[in-house]
Amino acid sequence: MSAVAAPLERRRPPRAVRRRRFLIAVADHSLLIAAAAAFLAPVVFIALTALMTNDQALSAHLWPHPFRWSNFKEAISTAPLLRWTLNTLIYAALATIGILVSSIPVAYALAKLRWRGRNAVMLVVLVALMLPPQVSVVPLYVMWAKLGNAVGFHFVGSLWPLIIPAWLGDAFSIFLLRQFFMTIPEEYLDAARVDGCGELRILTTVVLRLAKPAIAAVALFSVLYTFNDFFLPLLYLSDNPSSWVVSLGLSQYRSLHQVQWNLTMAATLLVMAPVIVVFFLAQRAFVEGVTLTGVKG
């Protein structure tokens, strides 16, 4: 056949049909649209307030007039926001690396190795998962304070009481990784064993590669958790402003500056920005992580 087929002209449905389909789509998503609006409203309110003068911020006007972009500069210069951000990054990075390094081998052992007492240890992990952090906070605080006295280093007031526990395993991360490791077919590991790998090598060359989505999800959860964490920094860092993280710093903005709402909101927006960027960049991994936490049938 030498004739060239004419390109297919796609039929467009009539206008009335398209309109009806659009309205049905809106109706189908109406609940989601309403929920999205409810979630978006505070963010919009923060963004608008951040651009107002302080007088406007206290008035009934919603729209800034004029737009004061200098609020952001002022927010950074009036408080050590950069220092707090750096502290937050140190906390988030070291805690996340610690959680990954300590939780991955435990999860692998719980999911893929056969040993006596495995189920009992899993039970302990589950119990730890169900305990709220507030339960252990007082004894831990006392422990850090006493340890500080014993070794002559003030742990309380530093980031270490927040970071070091992450290097000793995290129940939620262990559980999530274990659930994912269980879904990795045993034959991949057996093949690696026959091909010459020991267990550590299997973990590093095979399991880590196959479990990338789960590991990304754990890292993401950890970064977000540490970034938003307020309770533990408040407990350990309150007395030492040079160690503050952003979540703690933001809460102190009001007392520091006699409630300058516009600057508080500008700082809040600056702090929120990286989280929002991380979320959009890693949205897929995040959603996969959420589905991973559901037990697969």
Binding site: E187, Y188, D190, A191, V194, G198, V206
Partner: peptide, 15 residues
């Protein structure tokens, strides 16, 4: 790993 044996699996186990 020290048996000098190679194995082909039912689902091939290709990475």
């Amino acid at each position: 790993k020290n048996r000098d044996i190679a194995m082909v699996f039912q689902n091939y186990a290709l990475y």
